[in-house]
């Protein structure tokens, strides 16, 4: 209706392992397209300005905030959203670890958190506790206080538990 005066941009990319083609409005964010056009609502909007990480997705394996990406910038990329993380009924190890540590409360930050953790472990399979906290610092969580989240990823990464120690 109101799109008549807009030059739509045709894009195609890999979404959760499958090719997808669509026409997008050039000024929409990747987040708006993923949620509203494609209908994958697992990716959340908590701020729209890059400050909360709820919209984190992986683009070519790297964690980015979809609210700060223009929809046409998805073109040609390999994109993964939370919906593409578990394999059928089997949770991804990151998801399993978070489950086992009770690291999910309201769950609004959770999809973004999973994506960031996944992005971290793909780049660095043995991060230290500090590296984990740093890598997840772009994902705000108001419920959990992060401890169980970092515990979960730390255990998954197989590095020694450091929570007991006062870090310097």
């Amino acid at each position: 209706m109101q799109n008549s005066d807009i030059d739509l941009v045709n894009i195609q990319f890999q979404l959760n392992g499958k090719p997808i083609r669509l026409s997008v409005r050039p000024f929409d964010s990747a987040l708006a397209v993923i949620r509203d056009e494609i209908g994958l609502t697992g990716t959340k909007e908590g701020c729209g300005i890059g400050e909360c990480g709820a919209c984190t997705i992986l683009v070519d394996g790297k964690a980015i905030t979809a609210c700060l990406m223009l929809a046409p910038q998805l073109d040609g990329r390999e994109v993964q959203t939370i919906e593409g993380v578990a394999e059928g009924d089997t949770l991804h190890p990151v998801q399993q670890a978070l489950l086992a540590h009770g690291a999910v409360q309201c769950g609004f930050c959770t999809p973004g958190m999973v994506m960031s953790a996944k992005g971290l472990l793909e780049a660095n399979s043995h991060p230290t506790r500090e590296e984990i906290a740093d890598a997840l610092a772009g994902n705000l969580c108001r419920c959990t206080g992060y401890v169980q989240i970092v515990d979960a990823i730390e255990e998954l990464a197989g590095s020694p538990r450091a929570n007991e120690a006062v870090k310097r």
Partner: peptide, 20 residues
């Protein structure tokens, strides 16, 4: 296990803004 956690981890849980 907290109820609903698996769905939250998978991004399947609908929050009000996700309803359509």
């Amino acid at each position: 296990e907290r109820r609903g956690t698996r769905a939250r981890l998978r991004g399947d849980t609908h929050f009000a803004a996700d309803l359509n």
